[in-house]
Design a protein around this nucleic acid. Sequence first.
DNA 1: AAAAAACACTAACACTTGTTAGCTTTATTG
DNA 2: CAATAAAGCTAACAAGTGTTAGTGTTTTTT
Lengths: 196, 196
Amino acid sequence: MAKIKGNKSSTRRDIIITKASALFREKGYSASSMRDLAEIVGVEAASLYNHISSKGEILQEICFKIANEFMSNIEKIDSSNISSIEKIEAILRFHVQHMLNHYEDVYVSDREWKHLPDPYLSNYQSQRRAYRQRMGRIIDDGIAKGEIKDIDSSTAVLIMLHAVSGIESWHRSKKKVPGELLEENMLMILIDGMRK
Amino acid sequence: MAKIKGNKSSTRRDIIITKASALFREKGYSASSMRDLAEIVGVEAASLYNHISSKGEILQEICFKIANEFMSNIEKIDSSNISSIEKIEAILRFHVQHMLNHYEDVYVSDREWKHLPDPYLSNYQSQRRAYRQRMGRIIDDGIAKGEIKDIDSSTAVLIMLHAVSGIESWHRSKKKVPGELLEENMLMILIDGMRK
DNA sequence: AAAAAACACTAACACTTGTTAGCTTTATTG
DNA sequence: CAATAAAGCTAACAAGTGTTAGTGTTTTTT
């Protein structure tokens, strides 16, 4: 008989990781204790270990899920047949939308990756580096083709990525501009700033 | 007889706070222990308390020193007699230069203020809010005068401030573009992105 | 040289941390 | 219904946390 529920990922585990993400975002990874997390999940701290094997594993899961999503996105976009500046625009839109819709995960993986346990830390760092280099190459291409101003591409990458991560404070502010408007404003400023 | 050394701030205390700044930047406030700090200073943990009264006080000192510097800078610039876009440019240059020259302090006050002990936390938050509002008003003025594109000013503020804080990753990267070039590139992208 | 101030040390405190062991309860399967 | 698996609980561990008390040592001032 066909099972209706998926056989692989236990839902309970996913709940824990989701709640951990919110907790880590709010208090930071190091200041969040397993007892804090347990209370939010509604369980004793020791019970968490029936679903995960360590605190670090939770962080690792969050970080690499996000890293993979961004990585496969940039690959898809970069191999498509559009201009450099359109590529950058598409990448930025993906960043903005991800930051709007998966706020907690993106924020945590951006801010707390330093605390990844050791085999994963260096792995994560090189993925990060690869991602930036890839963006940098797209920009350099755009400069070579005259679509983009003659700027230092690594500086441009740095501006783009950090500007987007500023959506963090948008989430916390009371009177929020609607998400679509935020996206259009961001794109307008950043793309116009680069365009020749 | 006139004392040569200043009578107020003991040098030892300043050393501790400076080293704490570097430590907090590297590992984060919560993951930094007083024993870590003591070892860097070259002293036992308990000895630190001859110069400071708590871990939180160190953070507080770092955060408010930086906040005051930015606050008095924006006041000076805002009351000067230049165009709105020139004001924004001047503010941005101050941010970039501060990030280049007082990296650790700025980074810590930007990233770790959440952990401020409680009377100070809300104080810091309202200073932060005031600062952003002030920048927002300058931009709105610029829009009204036709110097700046018709954008949502709070989004623009958010982009500016976070883009600058991206200099964090410039500091860590191997092959650094020179600081002046970084500054010019940043200004070019951001100001051109806003200018009408 | 005496007195005072500044600074460091050792020992210990009360508490929090992540995690394990062992056992019991609930849910799923045959 | 019996058996198995999944998920919870209590208790406890070893190590690390910020901080205090009390004492000794070095430096500065008189």
